[in-house]
Design a protein around this nucleic acid. Structure first.
Lengths: 343, 343
DNA sequence: CTCCAGAGGGAATGCGCTTTCCGGTCTCAC
DNA sequence: GTGAGACCGGAAAGCGCATTCCCTCTGGAG
């Protein structure tokens, strides 16, 4: 049994196609109550399900929202996606999802595919890379916008897309200040390769704030922007800690530019019998949900992940001229991983 | 500047619409090499982007896959989603995502919306509820299949959908056996309301296996199927632990029907100064990624979340008649949370 | 030299729906 | 009583593409 079409409903109700359309699909012009009733009944009778594809073609609007994230299984992205998804639902939009495994090429492909599907807007979530790596995505987004689409990025600016900017610099600076107030002054920076712009923003602002506050970044350790990167940094950090102890210096405080690196680092340190926070202090960034029950509890910068997702969707569906960009708050939360022993 | 249409490309290349279509969209019938070249050039020239909506209408296939999960920010679901997403990409499908906040009504709405968008297949991930709560989704899926769609569930059977079944009973039974072999015999079951079928399957099989092995389930604590549910159970579990200690009995072993409950429980126990595994042992189920760096490490049953997502998509895109259901493996992993003190 | 098969290109139809545009009816004011 | 609107239902023209069918042209067999 083939799916009934709107024409079938119209026939069954004894009205024209136009009337059936007006009744069933939220037209501003509603026929008389009696016809409305007849059409409704016919639709229910036949089990009619509107064909959104055909609607999209006729209206040249799909009601679709393209969401590009770098790894949907990463709590950072899945939290943002949850917010975006909820907001999309409230706005009556459906979400097309793409997870790119942190590959800029896949990012470009995803944007192109979304453009082909004529989504109304595209939201790209995640750090930018080097200008060369970003160029293809940017070009693809440009084309998309030229064709009448709206684009939003959560992260750093990209082309002419609207931006929801995580407070990387502000958060890192505030964190540095808070740690200084706690009495830390010898810092190790656990960062990621240069191409990871988010890491650079955080690392740069942190270093600047530390220096301005009279502290010192005694070493920069560079690793992958992931849990395993943090883990890999463990050996070097442990060495630094031992050197500090041997020299009778204060235990160093590591700033990992993202929570997942902090978690990986702590895992390795535990294996090496280096105690956090006694031998090394550790701070992260993001306050991902995973951190909630981590032991030891980890000092970090809370950023409203779900809200960022919601804001991005709001910017994506906003009428022409509404808020071009959005800022979100942040909060430094000091926890046990940076506690100093009472004296 | 409006988006160029295929007609524009055809004009620009000096060929007919039909020829342009054949060149650009993988038709079995390819025009002569010279024309192919002309059309390709024209398309590139104009920046033509195929309209997937129009294609879908003409072909009456969308290449879309609907994925319904209960909470995309939960690592259980986001891991499955990651697998599904990757598999979909490999099969050249796009994924429409819906996250339902564990609300059966939202689940039904999502399926209906997917049906309206004429997705080729729908994958519903997550536990089933009571028959009454499941009925609407089931009906919606039934309609969808009647209209030519394919449906797959990851979890318990629902209507005539293909099933990817998590090894709930097998895993729980094996876990019970493994714990018995470790010397545990006094168990507390931390389960969820009856309507959560996954919890029932695990709890039922665990209890049966414990009893069969000569052990005893001394109490069943029922809470929400979530981290906070586990947390809420903490006070009662602590009481049980103290009673056991006072009576000079072996410390009880709690089986939390899902890892997130185990994590919440342990968090509360820590606050109450009840030590795991000395005062209470705790085991979970799923082996979600979050568990990787949890302290103490938690005994659980590993199930291949990503693979389940991949299998579901494979079943969704499989040709007629292929594998109707799929089974996945599991593995009990004993970790510190159930370790018994050396004697 | 004729006939036929085959290939290659184009015209035209239709996928299922929205949305003008049109003509008819009804109501109300003058 | 008459004309102007207001209102209402339907016919028809697309939305952008795939695909069927038809026509023409070419080459080879007989």
């Amino acid at each position: 049994m083939a799916r009934p079409r709107l024409q079938d409903v119209a026939n069954h109700a004894g009205v024209s196609l136009a009337t059936a359309s007006r009744v069933l699909n939220g037209s501003s012009r509603q026929p008389g109550p009696e016809l409305v009733e007849r059409v409704r009944a016919a639709a229910a009778d036949l089990g009619y399900v509107v064909n959104a594809q055909a609607q999209a073609l006729a209206r040249s609007r799909t009601g679709l929202l393209g969401l590009v994230v770098q790894d949907i299984s990463d709590p950072y992205f899945s939290s943002i996606a949850a917010g975006a998804q909820a907001a999309a639902r409230e706005h009556g939009r459906m979400v097309l999802l793409a997870s790119t495994e942190r590959d800029p090429d896949a990012e470009r492909d995803a944007v192109a595919a979304f453009a082909a599907h004529r989504v109304d807007a595209i939201v790209v979530v995640g750090t930018r890379w080097s200008p060369e790596e970003d160029a293809p995505v940017a070009a693809e987004l440009e084309t998309f916008e030229a064709g009448g689409g709206r684009s939003v990025v959560v992260g750093q600016p990209l082309g002419s897309a609207r931006v929801v900017r995580p407070p990387n610099a502000e958060g890192a600076a505030d964190l540095a200040a808070a740690l200084r107030d706690q009495g830390h002054h010898r810092f190790v920076l656990l960062s990621a390769p240069d191409r990871v712009v988010t890491a650079q923003e955080r690392a740069g602002a942190f270093t600047a704030a530390v220096t301005a506050g009279g502290g010192e970044v005694i070493e920069v350790v560079e690793q992958q922007f992931s849990r395993d990167g943090g883990y890999a940094a463990g050996d070097r950090v442990a060495e630094i800690a031992r050197e500090s102890a041997d020299a009778g210096l204060d235990a160093p405080c590591v700033f990992a530019v993202t929570d997942v690196m902090a978690i990986g680092l702590i895992a390795r340190l535990r294996e090496l019998a280096v105690t956090v926070p006694d031998d090394v202090r550790v701070a992260g960034f993001d306050d991902i949900p995973t951190l909630r029950d981590h032991v030891p509890s980890v000092t970090t910068v809370t950023i409203p992940l779900e809200e960022m997702g919601r804001l991005a969707v709001a910017a994506a569906v906003a009428e022409q001229g509404a808020e071009p960009g959005a800022a979100v708050g942040h909060e430094v939360v000091l926890r046990r991983s940076t506690a100093r022993p009472p004296r």
